[in-house]
Design a protein around this nucleic acid. Structure first.
Length: 477
DNA sequence: TGAAATGTTGGGGCG
DNA sequence: ACGCCCCAACATTTC
């Protein structure tokens, strides 16, 4: 009887899982395994919010397998050693996995592959989490893309709403007697800060499918405009599910396409704006693969001599805790702390405040998001922060500074989002949350801090800093 | 996936 | 009737 191991890492699903599907097709007995090896992700080990999600996602996957008389084998330790031990235990002849794209993950998988091949084990790696492998898309000169729009134009021509693979079903699921319970990995918080997470999310494949249905029913029609309103659930909120591979871009595309064209007589929603956002995720992975130092270094080397302000731990602390005195920034940071997620537009605004108005280095923000986001993803997080800071690929020009008050007035005109996350101000008129300078005493009386910096003065400082960078460039030539 | 300053235009009030 | 001014609305430019 031939037995295969399938290493599940960031593909915690049964449907549309190429590695799992292939193993089930090519072997009589399949052992699905999760090996916990956080040290191998250094220096970007999963943060607390990601670990919370992982715990629940592993449980969901185990439950789904149990419905087919299978179990998820959970182990911990060095990946190659654990894999070898399982191969011996089950007399397995092959190991399958879907690829990852972070530098540490690539290094770990490369080592794993070499070790297993030495042992004479067949190793099968598949593409399971992206529309397109990062090395399969290139400019006409053969270079990686550095600008989103041409990347998207190229990718778009290759995209079809292809049918996903069905749920994997092994002839026989192997079961490991030494499997750990997921609680043994110590992923859950020691102090219970996760009540807001429980209320907001349902990790796992079924939760992902449910979220997609909600999006298709409620928001897809008006996605282009509603996605910018933080008070509404106008975005897909699929990012953590995508990160952990509980759903794939192919599944999303296929189901949204089917949804949009289900009735010829009805208005058909335009999928393009949303597909474009999924393409940003692809672009982020493309960039991370080709420029693996960008999680820690500026993509644009000119920023090596950019003059950030001196690190200000107190300012960073206020930003983290949502105590900046800028309502939209604080609302976003508290949404993040409470739910592990922040609306995309608010992420840009909160990040702009930290990097431009406060001129703190983007790595401080990237690290905090890494620890607190349930969708923390090295590719997306890196692109997002470098984009906002102006040092990234296809970045926002440095002079593009968000005004958090203007943005609040435009995208949350009733202050619904602000009141939701700033409960101490909820009884005040909306206009005062949007224009807090009109009555600072009213806000202070409710314990809300005064603004930590002046919006327009810090904007001027940021512009001056950019000018310095620009003139350094011309002086160089 | 800006904001603010500056420029342009056109309607209407008014002498 | 006419020209002038004001200013809102929109467009363009600059950072």
């Amino acid at each position: 009887m031939s037995t295969a191991l399938v290493l599940l890492r960031r593909d915690l699903r049964l449907e549309d899982n190429p590695a799992l599907h292939a193993a089930c097709a090519e072997h009589e007995r399949v052992l699905p395994v999760y090996i916990h090896a956080p040290g191998e992700d250094a220096p970007w080990q999963q943060g607390a919010a990601s670990r919370w999600w992982l715990h629940h996602s592993l449980q969901a996957l185990d439950d789904a397998l149990a419905k087919q008389q299978g179990r998820l084998c959970i182990a911990r330790g060095e990946t190659l050693g654990v894999t070898r031990a399982l191969i011996r235990e089950f007399n397995a002849s092959a190991v399958y996995w879907n690829r990852r794209y972070e530098p540490a993950a690539i290094a770990s998988d490369t080592k794993l592959k070499a070790g297993l091949r030495e042992d004479g084990i067949a190793v099968e790696s598949r593409s399971g989490n992206l529309w397109c492998e990062p090395w399969q898309i290139a400019t006409d000169q053969g270079d990686p893309y550095r600008v989103f729009t041409p990347f998207w134009r190229k990718l778009r021509t290759q995209l079809q709403p292809d049918e996903p693979l069905p749920a994997a079903r092994a002839r026989e699921w192997a079961q490991a007697h030494g499997s750990l319970p997921s609680s043994a990995l110590g992923l859950l918080p020691k102090i219970a800060w996760d009540a807001g997470f429980d209320a907001a999310w349902r990790p796992g494949e079924a939760g992902a499918a449910e979220m997609l249905d909600i999006f298709a029913d409620d928001a897809l029609d008006n996605y282009k405009t509603v996605r910018d309103l933080p008070a509404r659930h106008g975005t897909s909120r699929l990012s953590p599910h995508l990160h952990f591979g509980e759903i794939t871009p192919r599944q999303i595309h296929y189901r949204l396409h089917a949804y949009a064209s289900r009735d010829r007589n009805r208005h058909q929603p335009d999928l393009e704006p949303y597909l474009r956002e999924l393409a940003w995720r692809e672009f982020a992975h493309h960039l991370l693969y080709h420029f693996p130092n960008t999680p820690d270094e500026n993509f644009n080397p000119r920023f090596e001599r950019f003059r950030w302000a001196v690190d200000n731990p107190d300012a960073i602390r206020r930003w983290r805790r949502g105590q900046t005195g800028i309502p939209l920034v604080d609302a976003g940071m508290r949404e993040l702390w409470t739910t592990g997620w922040m609306h995309n537009r608010v992420r840009m605004i909160a990040a702009s405040w930290l990097t431009k108005n406060l001129r703190q280095h983007w790595r401080h923000g990237a690290r905090w998001f890494w620890d607190t986001l349930v969708d923390a993803d090295l590719a997306n997080n890196t692109l997002g922060w470098q984009w906002v800071a102006g040092c990234g690929a296809d970045a926002a020009p440095y002079f593009r500074v968000f005004n958090p008050h203007t943005q609040a007035a435009r995208f949350d005109p009733e202050a619904i989002y602000l009141k939701r996350w700033l409960p101490e101000l909820a009884a005040l008129p909306a206009k005062l949350l949007l224009e807090p300078w009109r009555d600072p005493a009213a806000l202070a009386a409710r314990g809300y801090p005064a603004p930590m910096a002046d919006v327009s003065a810090t904007r001027q400082t940021a512009l001056a800093a950019w000018q310095q960078l620009a003139s350094a460039r011309s002086g160089e030539n």
